[in-house]
Simulated assay, not measured.
Amino acid sequence: MSPSQQARPATAGGRLRALLAQDSLITAPGVFDGLSAHLVARTGFSAAYLSGAGVSVAGFGLPDIGLLTQSEMTERARIVVTALGGIPLIADADTGYGAPMNVARTVREYEKAGVAALHLEDQAFPKKCGHLPDKELVTPEEFTAKLDAALQARTDDDLVIIARTDARGPLGIDEAIDRAGRYAAAGADVLFVEAPQNIREIEKIAAEVDAPLLINMVQGGLTPDTAPDRLAELGYRIAIHPGALLAPYVLHGLEALGRLGGTMPQAMPGPQGLFELVGLREWSAIGERYHDNAKDSA
């Protein structure tokens, strides 16, 4: 290797891959704007996670049900990458925002924004938060086509492509593990089985998926909170915490408004309650109205 090559700074993906090569769990708190990114950077974390739910709720006042566009997420990624100042950013890229050609463009735009990694999921469009009910999936074949488009589109081979399956909810843990194995064989760098519902499922994923693993720790979600040491012992490499800053922001914000005389809204606990604060019921009603109309006319 020449001196000039040795002096070349690592790309964002390269920095994340260096962390993945270490024998420890990467904890990535969720960020959604410049302030949250600065807080993560100034408290010593080695990575951060651009939460689609966080950007939807805090950035746009919308529930996480597939309402954001690729360009809106990409612009937020640029802001966060700048604020993080070199800390690798793992980004939520939903379903890739369309067909394989759209996925290719998504990867290129996220890469230009400076992310270290992005994850794509096998939900049908419009997607839903992984911890909401009634998710719909594409076939494994459809998703592997998108995954191949993503792998071929990156110009930096160090950009980490993460394949996420949401099959646990609608099809069960065995189908989710089977899909994860198929996506690993198709070339995904990291596998993400969304929403295991107990510690036995967390252990089963670790035992049966032969690839680096990411796990999503959602406060009040379907997956039980699991100690970092236990996750590392099982072999998980990344733990994302999308609500680590957003949940306290909402709770303390409501408390502060209550002290000023505000009336507290009624909302369910967990992700669904959070999304209800930003119009989940109203947006869902629109989606169901036209979904039902389409079925009636079929």
Rank of each mutant, 00 (worst) to 15 (best):
P3K: 06
Q6W: 13
R8E: 15
A10K: 15
A12F: 03
R15V: 10
A18G: 11
A21M: 08
S24V: 04
S24A: 15
L25D: 09
F32V: 04
G34C: 04
L39Y: 10
R42L: 10
R42T: 14
T43R: 13
T43H: 14
T43G: 02
F45N: 05
Y49C: 02
L50S: 02
G52Q: 01
G52T: 05
A53C: 05
S56P: 00
A58Q: 10
A58S: 14
A58D: 05
L62N: 02
D64M: 03
G66K: 09
G66M: 13
L67D: 00
S71P: 12
T74Y: 02
T74Q: 11
T74C: 14
A77S: 04
I79S: 09
V80R: 10
G85Q: 12
P88A: 15
L89E: 06
L89W: 03
I90P: 04
D92R: 03
D92E: 06
P100G: 02
A104Q: 11
T106P: 09
E109L: 15
E109T: 13
Y110L: 07
E111K: 09
G114H: 08
G114C: 07
V115C: 06
V115F: 04
V115N: 06
A117M: 08
A117N: 07
L118C: 05
E121C: 09
Q123E: 13
L132N: 01
K135P: 13
E136F: 13
V138M: 12
T139Y: 08
T139P: 00
E141C: 01
A150I: 08
Q152F: 02
D157I: 02
V160F: 07
V160I: 10
I162R: 05
I162Y: 12
A163M: 11
A163Y: 09
T165L: 12
R168L: 05
R168F: 03
G169D: 07
P170E: 13
P170N: 11
G172F: 05
E175D: 14
R179D: 03
R179N: 12
G181I: 05
A185M: 10
A186R: 04
L191R: 07
E194K: 08
N198R: 08
N198P: 02
N198Q: 03
I202L: 02
I202H: 02
E203G: 02
K204I: 00
V209K: 02
D210T: 09
D210W: 01
P212F: 01
L214V: 10
L214S: 02
I215M: 04
N216H: 11
M217Q: 07
V218H: 04
V218A: 01
Q219E: 15
G221E: 01
D225C: 00
D225V: 08
T226D: 06
R230F: 09
L231A: 04
E233M: 12
E233Y: 03
G235D: 03
A244C: 13
L245A: 14
L246W: 12
G253A: 11
L254D: 05
L257F: 13
L257E: 11
L260C: 12
G262L: 11
T263I: 15
M268D: 11
P269W: 09
G270C: 12
P271A: 14
G273P: 08
E276N: 08
L277I: 05
L280A: 07
L280F: 14
R281C: 01
W283M: 15
S284I: 00
G287M: 10
R289L: 09
R289K: 15
Y290E: 00
K295E: 12
D296Y: 01
